[in-house]
């Protein structure tokens, strides 16, 4: 039961964040790339002012899987790094926190390019 509730919360919160993206896509001339940038920066901002953390605690992956969650991850990383390493943390924190995701995307990108051929829509 607990699991079902967690999944439902993730579904609803994640779904709603995506709908915000769809509203931007359908009602503005913003391209997906711009919307993605907006979401990440928004995530960093909401993370910094402490609004996003409770959302993550409530919805779990529903808040961390959307790109706002990636922004939140960067903001958490940088604030931790600043605490433990001071000034250098400003430079290291963000990318260190995002490193796993970025590295994974690069690795799989190269592997897919090695294995597959592009196809029509």
């Amino acid at each position: 039961m607990e699991i079902a509730i967690s999944l439902l919360k993730a579904f609803c919160v994640g779904g709603l964040i995506c709908v915000v993206g769809q509203i931007l896509l359908d009602y503005t001339k913003l391209t997906p790339a711009r919307i993605l940038v907006g979401f990440v920066v928004l995530g960093v901002f909401l993370g910094t002012i402490g609004i996003y953390k409770p959302v993550v605690e409530f919805a779990g992956a529903g808040a961390t899987v959307p790109l706002t969650g990636f922004g939140y991850l960067l903001s958490e990383g940088v604030s931790q790094a600043v605490k433990t390493q001071g000034l250098v943390g400003i430079l290291k924190g963000g990318l260190c926190a995002g490193a796993a995701g970025i590295s994974a995307a690069i690795l799989f990108g190269i592997l897919v390019a090695l294995i597959f051929k592009p196809k029509k829509k």
Binding site: L74, G89, I102
Partner: peptide, 27 residues
Amino acid sequence: MFIIAGPVIVYGTIAAMASGTICYIIN
């Protein structure tokens, strides 16, 4: 590889650095 995702990383990192600067000042 980064024609679309590049901006996400660039501005994510910049925003994180801004956020870090704020944290640093507050600390």
